[in-house]
């Protein structure tokens, strides 16, 4: 029993060290090698880069909260992000994500984009495209590019 108690205590300590190491890795990556590859959302128009939004920049934009699929999502509207990138008129926008947890791409016509389509800032620190008329399965998580035509 004593051996088991020691092992359980050791495991608790190992898990605590692991959590501290994860925080350390995150900070180190952001400050060091990751500083040039930090999370960003790039807005392009016909292939030309218009603006590269850092997470902090996205968080500084006016955020809206919209209820969709039974839960509140909060973040800047897609229109306000495009406006901040200097885009007022467009016919369609293709939203691209990392594609790890979903299909990673969604194309919306101009008429499908209203003030309820958001770039929700998720707790993990990446943006997620969502809207009340966008089915749950079609949401794009970890958005990295907004390509406007």
């Amino acid at each position: 029993m004593k051996r088991q108690a020691r092992l359980l205590a050791t495991t608790g300590a190992v898990l605590a060290v692991l959590a501290a190491a994860a925080f350390g890795f995150e900070r180190w990556y952001e400050a060091g090698p990751g500083s040039t590859h930090a999370y960003a959302v790039v807005v392009t128009r016909d292939g030309r880069e218009m603006h590269r939004f850092s997470l902090a920049e996205l968080q500084r934009l006016h955020a809206r909260t919209v209820k969709m699929q039974g839960q509140d999502e909060t973040g800047p509207t897609l229109l306000s992000v495009l406006r901040a990138a200097g885009i007022d008129a467009f016919s369609a926008v293709t939203i691209t994500g990392l594609g790890v947890r979903d299909k990673g791409e969604l194309e919306l016509e101009r008429k499908q984009v209203d003030d309820r389509v958001l770039l929700d800032i998720a707790k993990r620190g990446t943006a997620k495209l969502c809207g009340p008329d966008i089915p749950y399965a079609s949401r794009v998580r970890d958005v990295i590019r907004l390509a406007v035509r």
Binding site: L18, A19, G34, V100
Partner: peptide, 23 residues
Amino acid sequence: GFALGVPGGYIAVGLGLATITHI
């Protein structure tokens, strides 16, 4: 994520919080 070629920067985002919440 690494095997699928996800950039390290994206994996690192929120990793500390994710570890705490998983535990």
